[in-house]
């Protein structure tokens, strides 16, 4: 069977390459011997008639936040169902914000879908740079670039910040049911093979060996080792 990875609104949510995590996931499945397909959904299209095996919602610039919110609206019920059925969802940056309850903006507050028990918060200033996070999957490494923090309630964060800002309160991201929410933008699943393995395991169960090393894991480890040395995080 072909695993279908739903990539939400890549035209709005791929500024940092976050939507490419759908491709990363598909590659990982292919390297493990499974069939996988990235199914992009354009803003304005209705929810797909099938239940995807995984969902990737990336991050966009603030000027398209409201448009992305509108595009998510017709999917809200389906997304809520999928999450309750354990379909893994990767939500990055503004994607994580939009799945939460509200986003404070200059001109007022934008309501999110309320699927995640979290909300965006004001940060004193925009943060941009490398970030390292201690997590259940080892130290996660990547880039963050965001103007708001995040507060969770009744949910665990992805981990604790070792370097960088994350949610702004020492924690980073949100883990709620099958949803992985993070500020680590770009190819977070490519950069962090152990997180990708957990995501693949949630996607395919035990039908394939989700913990088989990926073809590019050695490259990711070399990048992360250099980053951790640079950041003085061990």
């Amino acid at each position: 069977m072909t695993h279908r990875i739903l990539q939400l609104f890549p035209e709005l949510t791929n500024v940092n390459g976050d939507a490419e995590n759908a491709r990363v996931l598909a590659r990982r499945l292919e390297w493990a011997g499974a069939d996988a397909e990235v199914v992009p959904l354009t803003a304005g299209e209705p929810a797909p008639s099938f239940r995807p095996d995984a969902v990737v919602l990336g991050s966009g610039v603030d000027s398209v936040l409201a448009r992305t919110r509108e595009a998510l609206e017709p999917l809200a019920a389906a997304l809520g169902d999928w999450v309750s059925q354990g379909v893994p969802v990767l939500a990055v940056g503004t994607g994580m914000e939009l799945l939460g309850h509200e986003i404070p903006l200059d001109g007022g507050t934008l309501q999110g879908l309320g699927i995640l028990p979290g909300m965006a918060t004001a940060l004193p200033a925009r943060v941009a740079g490398e970030i390292a996070v201690r997590s259940d999957w080892g130290v996660l490494v990547g880039y963050e670039n965001h103007a708001r923090g995040y507060r969770t309630y009744a949910a665990r964060p992805m981990g604790q910040v070792l370097h960088g800002t994350g949610n702004g309160d020492g924690a980073e991201g949100i883990r709620y049911g099958s949803v992985f929410g993070t500020h680590l933008h770009g190819p977070v699943l490519a950069r962090n093979p152990s997180l990708a393995m957990a995501f693949v395991a949630a996607t395919v169960g035990d039908t394939i060996d989700a913990y088989a090393p990926g073809r590019a894991d050695g490259i990711a480890e070399a990048i992360n080792a250099a980053a951790l040395r640079r950041l003085g995080v061990g």
């Binding site: 390459g17 670039n145 933008h185 770009g186 190819p187 990711a220």
Partner: peptide, 30 residues
């Protein structure tokens, strides 16, 4: 931040004999 280039579909390159530069591993990962 090499994430910058991830939206680029570079598959047409097909085969890279050598990937180099101080961000060689990041480019190779993509």
């Amino acid at each position: 931040d090499p994430s910058y280039f991830w939206p680029v579909d570079a598959s047409r390159i097909g085969r890279a004999r050598i990937v180099s530069g101080s961000k060689a591993h990041d480019m190779a990962l993509q």
